[in-house]
Simulated scan of single mutants.
Amino acid sequence: MVSQAQIDEAARLIREGELVAFPTETVYGLGANALNPEAVAKIFIEKERPSFDPLIVHICKIEDLALLCEKMDERVLALAAKFWPGPLTIVLPRSNLVPDIVSSGLPTVAIRMPNNEIALKLIAAAQCPIAAPSANKFGKLSPTKAQHVRKQFPLLPCILDGGATSVGIESTVIAIEDDGFKILRPGVITRQEIETVLPYSTSPVKNDPFFASPGLLNSHYSPNKPLYIEGDYQPMADTTNAGYISFTGMGGEGYKRVEYLSHTGNLSEAATNLFRTLHSLEESDVTFIVAEPIPLQGIGVAIMDRLKKAAYRFTKNESSPDKEP
């Protein structure tokens, strides 16, 4: 378990403009002082992340919203009361204290309060909000264990090892509109749950959603080995050297290795195990990976969002002009 002394040392590094990897309930984050643009720039350099992709700022108390936001309303406080700490990120008008680099020059900032004791203690000890995308190289698999972070950042001086994350996929991101909310990135908090607080908006998103939230590129969360979703395009190949990801506890006959997101079709189990399973197969001796599709209901929408983005660069048309290298 992470000690208070380790948290205090990590907080000192944050205050001095250095990077720290730390656990949240979703995935591990690569954090820097959100109010220090030079420190935040190190995140983009270390992750090899494009500057147009904004970051999420993590806070440990509601009062920090006033520091980061130009204006709020009672709807934001109602959402925070219902879902924070927790895996919900809210995009709000930013204050002048938020550096341009954090929000990629947008007039908004994405904020959440993580539901993880180590993360909350770190933010409190650092005495500043912490900007933190997932602690992985840009476009690669998200980390749900400290070992996943170390694999991609072997020279990072400080990784707080809080064990496996409990949720396993990134937070739901929403934008607040005049008539309600819109989901920019699906997560384990579903539209139906948020609608218990606010109605779903029918108006256009004020800011281009491609830029308003992280995690919206077509290709993201991708393993180093080819990944295909069963039923979609996959190459004619010998599956005796391939890996299979099962959601229902069935399938995978003839595959070299079978990993289970769940043995019973449990969506919460599948979300928790998704990136751990992808890391395991990436590190194995299989030549490619095939995943059983997830039902598009509840948090299954968010799981399939991650799977489709992870498989995108292996399945899209080679001649498409926006193919990523």
Rank of each mutant, 00 (worst) to 15 (best):
F138P: 02
E117Y: 01
I130V: 14
P143N: 06
A131L: 07
T108M: 06
A132P: 09
G139N: 13
V109Q: 11
P129Y: 07
A146C: 11
T144M: 04
L106A: 07
L122V: 01
T108N: 09
R150H: 11
L156W: 12
P143G: 11
L141I: 15
Q127T: 03
A125S: 14
N136C: 11
L120G: 00
R150M: 14
A110L: 04
K151Q: 14
A124V: 00
L122D: 00
T144R: 08
A131H: 06
F153V: 13
E117H: 09
L122C: 02
N136Y: 09
F153Y: 13
T108H: 06
L106W: 05
S134A: 09
K121L: 01
M113H: 02
A135C: 07
L120F: 00
N115Y: 01
M113C: 10
R150N: 11
I118F: 00
F153R: 12
A119H: 04
A110R: 03
A126E: 01
Q127E: 15
N116Q: 06
L141S: 02
G105K: 09
A132Y: 12
E117V: 11
L141T: 06
A126V: 01
L106R: 04
K151L: 15
A110S: 13
T108E: 09
G139K: 09
R112D: 02
A124G: 04
Q152S: 05
A119C: 14
N115K: 14
P143V: 01
P133E: 07
N136G: 10
G105M: 06
K137R: 15
A119W: 04
K151V: 03
C128M: 04
K137L: 15
L156G: 13
S134G: 08
I118C: 00
P154G: 11
L122A: 02
K121A: 15
A110F: 03
K151A: 15
Q152P: 07
V149A: 12
C128I: 08
